[in-house]
Amino acid sequence: MSDNTSGLVLAGVGGQGVVMASMIVADALVRAGHDVKQSEVHGMAQRGGSVFSHIRWGPQVDSPLVPVGTASVLASFEWAEAIRWVPYVRVGGVVIADVRTIVPPGACADRRSWTTRYPEIDPSLLLDRRLKARLIDAAATATALGNVRAANSVILGSVAAFVDVEQSHWEASIERLVPRGTVDVNLAAFRAGLEVAEAPTPAPAPEHRGFSGPHQIDIRQEWCKGCDICSRVCPEYCLEVGSDASLNVSNPDACTGCRLCELLCPDFAISISAPRQTAHVGAFNEPGEIEDESD
């Protein structure tokens, strides 16, 4: 591999402005006289998915992709994305991780344990990997400067602290590429980012005890007229009205005990009871049982 080529990875969530930020980085590197290649993936990933951009520079760049384990800097606009992309950073490299969290709804799907799959903000997840980590809160810095929307420039400033490019090049690129009328606040945010203070590590979220198993759904068939209200409201799709208008529990293990069906049944035909504490203990307390929807 060409040893005089450097790599940088920017990561975030669709809509966070990763692509624009990486255009600024690439533009500044060109101004500094480097050959530059910048590669990103558009399309499906923009719909709230994970978005990343690779930037490589040097005297002559071949592959636009940063090989795993070689990036000198990873800047992530969101906490979980820093975790996802950290293998790209070389030993001794730098991770700039914004402590902003964007929790995808899929992280809130395990309604047995009620634990989210979102990784805790724990610097050791990064530091254990023999690299430098800097946790920042760009939105707080930008808000203090008067416009939260300049947060990405704070992150760019933090990146600039570790990339050998004249400040004037960075500022020329920002001036040209940010929306007119926001140049001053973005420049101020960029300069603040150069010196930005480490964000305090937030307190860990409270533990959730959850409950120990599915609830019991009892149906009084003789009172049920098969009106279908319960099956339509059940968030877990536990109930089904058969073609003979009889109500069946089609998915008993999924009941979380919300009691919507019990409360809305006009005929008082359903009762929900809490799980017996001995049943399924442990089995449903395991976090992270649900399957990945992606990759």
Binding site: V68, G106, L125
Partner: peptide, 15 residues
């Protein structure tokens, strides 16, 4: 040349 895999993180499919 093969770094450790990423710590577990949340799946983020498009939405």
């Amino acid at each position: 040349t093969h770094p450790d895999p990423a710590p577990p993180t949340v799946a983020r499919p498009p939405l």
